[in-house]
Design a binder for these strands. Structure first.
Lengths: 131, 131
DNA sequence: TATCTGTTATATTATGAATATAACAGATAG
DNA sequence: CTATCTGTTATATTCATAATATAACAGATA
């Protein structure tokens, strides 16, 4: 896999895992229909507990990122998660707001902030075109 | 004060407080040199413990947002926090990245994301001009 | 002198993150 | 049929963090 988990980070393991899998989907490194490792094999690959991986899979399932069939195992949802509704956008704003506030206090202008966002979007686009 | 703390939220109280004070500075609701309430009075105003407020003040002091004089009490730092260096921008990118990844998966295009950021910046600008 | 300030110390409770071990039921390969 | 692998559930333990409670100290102030 493309996973790079830092066991020493203050960021919880299950959050890192969740983020990196979602980023993998956004970048097209894993495509709709692709299988994901079993909770046990992924856990032993990374060197963590089975339950930590299971927790992540449950969260991803709940958000519509993956499907879990008793037979086929774990698969990237071909449909993808539901489109962003107003509630989602509201929570998105709530997450960005403190980042912008701190940036303003540190002298990062709107232009520069938007530029950083554009560069991040390019990070995802470029990878998507490699395939 | 302009504080609105949700004691039921899963977001820790000290994080809410920290964010709202920084947002207050970014919006110009509190200006450089302005005093902040004492740890005890603010704590009793909100209905929380003195140590929770003290923790927030220590974090804000550490980041250069406020100054704590033995005499004058707590004051918004006239200098403000240090300008964003490359390390800060790196952590900023790390914070924005998962938001963008999830947005892409949910069908939010770059344009719309940037538009949301612009609106948030306006949130801060508009308030700043009221004074 | 009494009061308010930030600060420090100590202890307790509650919650969440992560682990360990075990077991169950369904599917699959030998 | 048997053995193995799958996700799932249950239970328990360890550890760190968030939040509280109570107390005390030293400097400044009225």
């Amino acid at each position: 896999m493309f996973l790079n988990i830092n066991l020493e980070s203050s960021e919880p393991i299950y959050i890192q895992l969740q983020h990196q899998i979602i980023e993998g989907i956004a970048k097209g490194r894993i495509s709709p229909g692709d299988p994901l490792p079993s909770v046990r094999s992924l856990a032993s690959d990374i060197g963590i507990n089975l339950h930590t991986v299971n927790k992540v899979y449950q969260l991803l399932k709940q958000d519509g990122y993956i499907l879990i069939h008793r037979q086929k195992g774990v698969v990237i949802n071909p449909e993808g998660p539901p489109k962003a509704d107003e509630e989602y956008k509201q929570s998105l704003r709530a997450n960005i707001r403190p980042l912008i506030a701190a940036s303003i206090c540190r002298g990062i202008e709107e232009e520069e902030f938007l530029q950083i966002c554009k560069e991040l979007f390019n990070e995802f686009k470029e990878e998507g075109e490699k395939k």
